[in-house]
Amino acid sequence: MKIRPLGDRVVIKKIEVEETTKSGIVLPGTAKEKPQEAEIVAVGPGGVVDGKEITMEVKVGDRVLFSKYAGNEVKIDGTEYTILRQDDILAIIE
C-alpha cells in the first residue's frame, strides 16, 4: 500500500533509539522517551493551506527531528507511521 499525504502534511517513520545507555545500562520500555528522530517516507504537494502559500522544504529520505507529541500515528501493513504537518518538523538532520 502506498501513502500520499495531502496539503502540507508529511508521512514519517520513527527511528527507534537504542535500548541501552552509553554506559551499558539496559532501559525498560517505560523509561524510554518517545523517539523524535524520523525518516520521511512521503511528502504532500504543499500549495495553498489556510490561505497561505506553502512550499515543501523536506523531501523523501530526509532525516528529521519533530515535536514530541505531534501528528497522528497510523499502522499500515504492520508498519507504524506518523502523519504530521510540515510545521511540526523542527530540523533536518544532515
Rank of each mutant, 00 (worst) to 15 (best):
M1D: 10
M1A: 14
M1T: 11
K2C: 01
R4H: 14
R4N: 15
P5D: 10
P5T: 10
P5C: 13
L6E: 11
G7Y: 12
G7V: 05
D8T: 00
D8A: 10
D8P: 00
D8Q: 01
R9F: 11
R9P: 00
R9N: 13
R9D: 12
R9G: 04
V10P: 10
V10C: 09
V11L: 10
V11M: 08
I12L: 11
K14R: 15
K14I: 03
V17W: 08
V17S: 14
E18N: 10
T20V: 12
T21W: 03
T21N: 07
K22G: 13
K22F: 13
K22R: 14
S23I: 12
S23W: 13
G24K: 09
G24H: 08
V26P: 08
V26K: 15
P28V: 06
P28N: 13
G29Q: 04
G29R: 12
G29F: 02
G29A: 13
G29Y: 03
T30P: 00
T30N: 07
T30R: 08
A31V: 05
K32T: 09
P35Q: 07
P35F: 06
Q36D: 11
E37M: 12
E39L: 03
E39G: 08
I40H: 06
I40A: 05
V41C: 01
A42D: 05
A42R: 11
A42L: 06
G44W: 06
G44T: 08
G44V: 08
P45Q: 05
P45H: 04
G46L: 04
G46H: 06
V48H: 02
V48F: 03
V48S: 13
V49E: 04
D50R: 13
D50A: 10
G51S: 11
G51W: 07
G51C: 07
G51L: 11
K52Y: 06
K52N: 09
E53S: 12
E53V: 12
E53A: 09
E53Q: 14
E53L: 14
I54F: 12
I54V: 15
T55F: 13
M56A: 11
E57R: 14
K59Y: 02
K59M: 09
K59Q: 13
V60D: 00
R63A: 02
R63P: 02
L65S: 09
F66H: 10
S67P: 01
K68L: 09
K68F: 05
Y69Q: 00
A70Y: 02
G71L: 08
G71T: 04
G71R: 10
N72E: 15
E73C: 00
V74Q: 07
K75H: 01
K75T: 15
I76T: 09
I76W: 01
I76G: 02
I76A: 11
G78V: 08
T79G: 04
T79H: 07
T79Q: 15
E80F: 01
Y81G: 04
Y81S: 05
T82E: 01
T82Q: 03
L84S: 05
L84T: 07
R85V: 05
Q86G: 00
Q86H: 01
D87A: 15
D87T: 15
D88W: 06
D88V: 01
I89H: 11
I89R: 11
I89L: 14
A91Y: 01
I92E: 08
I93E: 12
E94Y: 01
E94Q: 10
